[in-house]
Every structure is written in C-alpha cells, then in structure tokens.
Simulated scan of single mutants.
Amino acid sequence: MTRLPTYRSLLFVPGTREDRFDKAARAGADAIIIDLEDAVQPSRKAAARETALVWLANNSKGVDVGLRINSPRTPEGNADLAALAASGLRPAFIMVPKSQTDIDLEIVSEATGCERILAIIECGRGLHHAHEIASRSPCGILFGGVDFSASLGADLDDWDALLHARSVISAACGTAAIPAYDAPMLDVSNNAQLIETSSQSRRLGYSGRACIHPDQVEPVNEVYVPTAEELANAKGILSALEAADGGVVLFNGKMIDRPVILAAQRLIDRARP
C-alpha cells in the first residue's frame, strides 16, 4: 500500500457551513475534515451530506480533505456510505466516529471501496479493541477525548485522568505503524494550555492533533513539526547507518539499533518542507 501522509493538524469544519469550507482550506492545516456527525443537527444531516459531496467534487484548494461520516452503526451513517459510494468520490480519508471494533472500519471500506480510513476511538469498547482497530485504520486513529471522558465521567481537562486511554491508543498506533492524533481542545481562547497539552501528547508518541478553530492551527503545527535539532540528529543517525555498511552503527558514541533507526526515519518522514 502507498505510504499515507502524517498530519500535524486536522481542522474540523461543520458540514452545514459551506461558507467556511474555503476559509478552512486556507487556514494552514495539513488537512481539513468536513464533519457530518457531531457538528450537524439531525434535521440537517441530508442537506449537509449533499453540500459536502458537491464541494468535494469541485475542490481544488490543494489541501487534503477528509470526511467524517456518521457511525456505520446508525441509519445516517448508512446513508452517508450509500451517498459516498454513489458519488464515486474519494476523499483523502474517511473518518469513522465511535469505532468500537475493526468491523466498523471493514464495513466502511467495503461499502465505499476506499481503504483510506481514519478511526476515532471514543468509548471503552473501542479502547479495548484499539489494536484491532489500528490494523484496519491505515490513516491513523484520533482519540475522541470529549466523548470518551463523558462516558467515564472523567475530567476532560485533567491530563492524568485520560493518560491511560491516550497511552493505549499511542501503543496501538505504534504497533501498526500509523499516526495517532490527539483530541481537539474545546477552549479555543487558551493557547497556552493548547501548546502545553499538545507537547505532552507529542512526547507520548502522537503525531498531530485535531483543531476546531482556525486560530488553533498554527500553535498545533509548531508543536508537532520536528525541530531543526531533532532533524539533524535523525539525519545523523541514518548517515551513520549508511557509513557502517552493515557493521555496528555508532552515532555520538552510542550504539544505534533498529528501533532507533526506525524512529529517526519516522521523524524525517513527518518533517514538512
């Protein structure tokens, strides 16, 4: 399978707000997500679906555009799949909310013919099946922290309260060699907390984060892009590997084994020009 991109920022835009689609595409996010699920009232689902597909068919903004459908376990989700399949359109990825098992993703892939799936884990059952979900979600997994915390009665803003869930998702994504994306922050005015928690999730192995407002995009991009020092170190490791020509690899006096080499390559792959 072709290597799929890793994003730093994914910006949600409501499927009912066609007037914001172009603005979102120009906001500097690595990808935008037209949302047909949480951001759309039940009475407006059909209209949002039609609007999103028309815009996708004519999109030439040069930014990756994903589509968050409704859960395939719901009638609205089935309607989304039928409309997407009939349109013949292929978004950059299909985001599948409330993924509980890998069967959810299999249904979406088979119904649409699209394998570019990005799952959202936002309940205990989904977390229990995180590794199976990761195996069928080549575009990555988004931690649905808002719904997950609500299902537990946990504090969304307490990092420690959701650390276990974030860690499980990070481990599952690492095993499957796919990116993990952190939940959006609801307080769009608190950039200091956005940067702090994004830095924490990056240290945990997350590659990027969802955003719900254009003002969040730039701080998120800055956190998740590798620094010049990190890139230089990673490139030095790969250069040492090449120079060793099959022998023991040493870099800065340390012996470098395969996991370190793979981590260096992943970091370089994440770098943006």
Rank of each mutant, 00 (worst) to 15 (best):
T2G: 09
L4R: 13
P5C: 10
V13N: 01
P14G: 09
A24F: 12
G28K: 08
A29I: 06
A31Q: 00
A31D: 01
I34G: 00
L36P: 02
L36M: 09
D38G: 09
A39T: 13
A47W: 03
A47Y: 05
A48S: 03
K61F: 09
I69Y: 08
A85H: 06
A85S: 08
A86F: 01
P91F: 02
Q100P: 00
T101I: 01
D102F: 07
I103Y: 13
I107K: 08
S109R: 15
G113I: 13
C123S: 13
R125N: 10
E132T: 06
A134W: 03
P138H: 03
G145V: 05
V146N: 07
D155I: 11
L156N: 06
L156F: 14
D160F: 14
A171S: 12
T175Y: 11
A176N: 10
I178A: 06
A183W: 00
V188I: 15
I195T: 13
S199I: 03
S201R: 02
R202E: 02
L204R: 08
G205Y: 01
G205N: 04
R209P: 06
D215Q: 07
E218T: 14
V223I: 14
V223C: 04
V223T: 04
N233P: 00
S239V: 12
L241E: 14
E242F: 14
E242Q: 15
E242R: 15
A244H: 12
G246D: 10
L250S: 12
K254Q: 15
M255N: 08
D257K: 15
P259S: 14
V260G: 01
A264S: 13
D269T: 07
A271V: 06
